[in-house]
C-alpha cells in the first residue's frame, strides 16, 4: 500500500481500536490531547508476558490521528514497549507519510505511549 493509503486504510479498519468493554481490563493507560482539543489519543497497554504486550487505543481527531494511534499500538505489540518508546515523531510521520501540518500527531501518540509506559511500573 502507498503511504497515504496507509492512513486511510488504518483509519477505515484499525486493527487495534479498543472496545468499550476493554476499559475494565486495562490498568495502564494514558490520555494525551492537543492544546486546542482538536484531537486526543488514549492508549491502553497491558503486559501479556515478559517483553510482550497488548496495546489498544481510543482516539478522536482527523484520520491521521486514528492511523497513528493504530500504527503505534502495532509497534508495541510487535517490538515491545522498550523499543517502541525510542520511536520519534519523525518516524511516525515517515511511516504514514504525514504532511508537515500533521507532524504534531506523532508527538501526540508518542506522548500518550510514554505516559502509558510510565504507568506500567506503578
Amino acid at each position: 500500500m502507498s503511504s497515504r493509503n496507509a492512513v486511510i486504510d488504518r483509519f477505515l479498519t484499525p486493527a487495534h481500536a479498543a472496545a468499550d468493554s476493554d476499559i475494565d481490563q486495562w490498568h495502564n493507560e494514558s490520555v494525551q490531547q492537543t492544546p486546542g482539543a482538536d484531537a486526543w489519543c488514549r492508549l491502553l497497554v497491558q503486559p501479556v508476558c515478559a517483553h510482550s504486550y497488548r496495546a489498544r487505543f481510543w482516539a478522536y481527531g482527523p484520520p491521521a490521528v486514528i492511523a497513528a494511534a493504530d500504527w503505534l499500538c502495532e509497534q508495541v505489540e510487535r517490538d515491545g514497549i522498550e523499543v517502541t518508546a525510542r520511536i520519534k515523531p519523525g518516524d511516525v510521520a515517515a511511516a504514514l507519510d504525514l504532511a508537515a501540518s500533521e507532524r504534531h500527531i506523532g508527538i501526540l501518540v508518542i506522548d500518550a505511549l510514554a505516559t502509558a509506559a510510565s504507568n506500567l511500573g506503578r
Partner: peptide, 13 residues
C-alpha cells in the same frame, strides 16, 4: 465526531 474524520469516512465508505 471530528469533521475531517467523518467526511473522509463517508468519502471512502
Amino acid at each position: 465526531v471530528h469533521g475531517e474524520a467523518i467526511r473522509t469516512g463517508l468519502a471512502h465508505g
